[in-house]
Design a protein around this nucleic acid. Structure first.
Lengths: 200, 200
DNA sequence: GCGTTGCGAAACTTAAGCGTATCGAAATTA
DNA sequence: TAATTTCGATACGCTTAAGTTTCGCAACGC
């Protein structure tokens, strides 16, 4: 038992640079954020962008897919906390978080990939969905279910349908909306429209 | 004036095979339908799939992008006609057409491309949107505007918002819905939910 | 100091795909 | 029949990138 022995004894030799590791992931996300699809990402471009040798990448990930999975996993920002006072306010909070992410090219393009490459990289997407998407879906599901339970929403709602309506609309705005349509009150107007309906 | 001269005199030599042309377009759409992105499509793969020489492709299209534009253009089925009796029914008709297309892998993947490659191939997507997407958006816009005008819908509706809500929800179902969620009454339930709202 | 491992850089082999050129055969007009 | 053009097939030179190897140097434990 030496002093250094914490949990795992450090192996001999120079330790791997965490800085390089972060730079690689950053570079990967940068390139994805610039609109690059998984198949267009090249290890060479990542290495060059990160200021790193290709060996340093291959020492950590055996192929591009593994690297992309790890990179996307770092983006799994948790859904914003909701106050729990009013269902309307909580839905606005969740949806406005989606809107806010549209500013960041990086997270904007992640959805592109999720949408377009789920056929080509099913394992990658399965892992990404479980880590990043499902928690947010669950947060919204909870809010809606709460509203159904306490009478703030109709008692016979199809919760899944409501989730598709709200997040689908926000996705449309994010993806194809004019910048002017992404106004700060977008989430509020969306929720109110869906709450009260469009019939007179 | 010879007998053969119809509109344009046919040039000498063997005429281009329309069969080959169709086979090329079919092969292109097949590959896209299998989940291939534009950047992954290779002329060689298309030629091989179509049973055609590469020259036969290059004789018609000068590059991949032009070919893809033409191929996608053949998919621009016009929006279904609406009866014009009730706004609810017309919206269901339009949205159910979207649902029906989810069956065809080919058209399903076109949306993938539209979503993911609009950054990388802006010109291509601009043309595709104008030819294929905008007519459908206009059809829905007309129906909603009619409802606003004749009192079937609320007078102060944000038409663009309603369009995003309806088509966004259907897109979510198409893209990530379980097959069981794409039930025949999906469009009807969607429209009714949006019509009446979710608040009690 | 010494052995070990990681570092970035560069060279290397292999593979895919582009766009062009060339071939003999087939289809068409004159 | 002769001229012309397209056909599918194949070969070519070129570029890009994958993944591996080698290099000299740096960082660490002992």
């Amino acid at each position: 038992m030496t002093i250094q022995e914490t949990a795992t004894a450090r192996p001999a030799g120079r330790p791997r640079s965490e800085k390089a590791e972060r730079a690689i992931i950053e570079a990967t996300l940068d390139l994805i954020g610039e609109g690059m699809g998984v198949s267009e990402l090249s290890i060479e471009a990542i290495a060059s962008r990160a200021g790193v040798g290709k060996t340093t990448i291959y020492r950590r990930w055996s192929n591009k897919e593994d690297l992309v999975v790890d990179a996307l996993a770092t983006l799994k920002a948790p859904p914003p906390p909701v106050k729990g006072e009013s269902v309307r306010d909580d839905l606005i909070t969740l949806l406005d978080a989606m809107r806010g992410e549209a500013d960041q090219a990086r997270t904007r393009c992640v959805m592109n990939i999720a949408m377009s490459e789920s056929d080509r990289y099913p394992r990658l997407m399965e892992r990404f969905f479980k880590a990043a998407v499902e928690p947010r879906r669950q947060a919204m599901r909870d809010v809606i279910a709460r509203g159904v339970a306490n009478g703030e929403l109709k008692p016979d709602l199809d919760v899944e349908m409501v989730m598709r309506i709200l997040s689908g609309a926000m996705m449309m705005f994010r993806k194809w909306g004019e910048p002017s349509e992404l106004a700060p009150d977008l989430a509020e107007r969306l929720v109110d429209t869906v709450m009260t309906g469009i019939a007179p």
